[in-house]
């Protein structure tokens, strides 16, 4: 069984592995950074193995199976370890390449740290799981709801605007109306299918998000289309004259 600690180390290892490759490709095979990241990857993998082998060093888990009679602490699925690893990887890549990525990575790390801390605290706050959940939500919802919503907006806006900027002028008009129509018609379709499970909605949203992300990345890589600069006063007069015939 993969323990929680094991998950963390394996996650770090995987992320560091990819980060090493990304760093190598991005920095035109500058060896030192890739070596450091590779070492981190290998080290984390080893630690992960140790962690699994010792069952996270949990005495109770290995010593006496009968002790499992004690009602188990109901843990929420902990996706914090891989996320922490992701944050660490992101900030490492950022360190090597771009400041924004570093800050994003640090942000993810801070968030994971906070969430993990609170979850860890809340899960053993009282003996009542339901009450624990309430306590946790009471503490974290004010932070989570707006941050997640804001990240959602930023995600759509940034991705889609990259697409629009990469497309030719008429293309961006078509893309915008296209996206709107797709969203509208999908929503109409789903709303008229009362039998459709909520998983369909989730699937549509996830697919849309992935498509948008892919589009955004492609748009970013492709770069903006060439936009001509209007600069000088005389030129603006020239255009002003042209305006007489064309709005």
């Amino acid at each position: 069984m993969t323990t929680t600690g094991g998950k963390l180390w394996f996650g770090v290892s995987t992320l560091a592995f990819f980060a090493a490759w990304a760093f190598a490709l991005g920095s035109d095979f500058e060896w030192f950074g890739a070596f450091v990241l590779g070492t981190i990857s290998a080290g984390a993998f080893l630690l992960g193995l140790v962690s699994v082998a010792t069952g996270d060093g949990d005495v109770a888990a290995t010593a006496d199976p009968a002790a499992a009679e004690v009602p188990a602490r109901r843990s929420l699925p902990a996706f914090w370890p891989p996320l922490a690893a992701f944050g660490a990887g992101l900030s490492l890549i950022g360190l090597a390449s771009h400041g924004a990525l570093l800050y994003a990575g640090l942000g993810v790390l801070a968030l994971v740290f906070l969430e993990w801390l609170v979850q860890g605290w809340a899960e053993r706050a009282t003996g009542d799981h339901e009450h624990n959940r309430k306590l946790r939500n009471q503490l974290m919802f004010p932070l989570e709801v707006p941050v997640v919503a804001a990240l959602g907006v930023a995600f759509i806006v940034l991705s889609f605007s990259r697409v629009l900027l990469a497309l030719p002028k008429n293309g961006s008009v078509i893309a915008a109306i296209g996206l709107a129509l797709v969203v509208l018609s999908l929503a109409t379709l789903i709303s008229f299918k009362p039998t459709a499970a909520s998983s369909v909605l989730t699937a549509v949203v996830v697919l849309g998000a992935v498509a948008l992300l892919a589009g955004g990345i492609v748009g970013l890589v492709h770069g903006e289309r060439h936009i001509e600069k209007h600069d000088a006063e005389h030129k603006s007069e020239h255009v002003a004259n042209a305006e007489e015939t064309h709005p």
């Binding site: 959602g152 907006v153 759509i156 806006v157 940034l158 991705s159 889609f160 605007s161 629009l164 900027l165 961006s172 915008a176 996206l179 709107a180 969203v183 509208l184 929503a187 789903i190 709303s191 009362p194 909520s198 909605l201 949203v205 849309g208």
Partner: peptide, 23 residues
């Protein structure tokens, strides 16, 4: 269920608008 769908749709359309403005 419908309310949720339409709220989400509204948000998506709004985000499209803002994306257009950024563009």
């Amino acid at each position: 269920r419908r309310a949720r769908i339409w709220i989400l749709t509204t948000a998506a359309l709004g985000a499209t608008f803002v994306a257009g403005q950024v563009y």
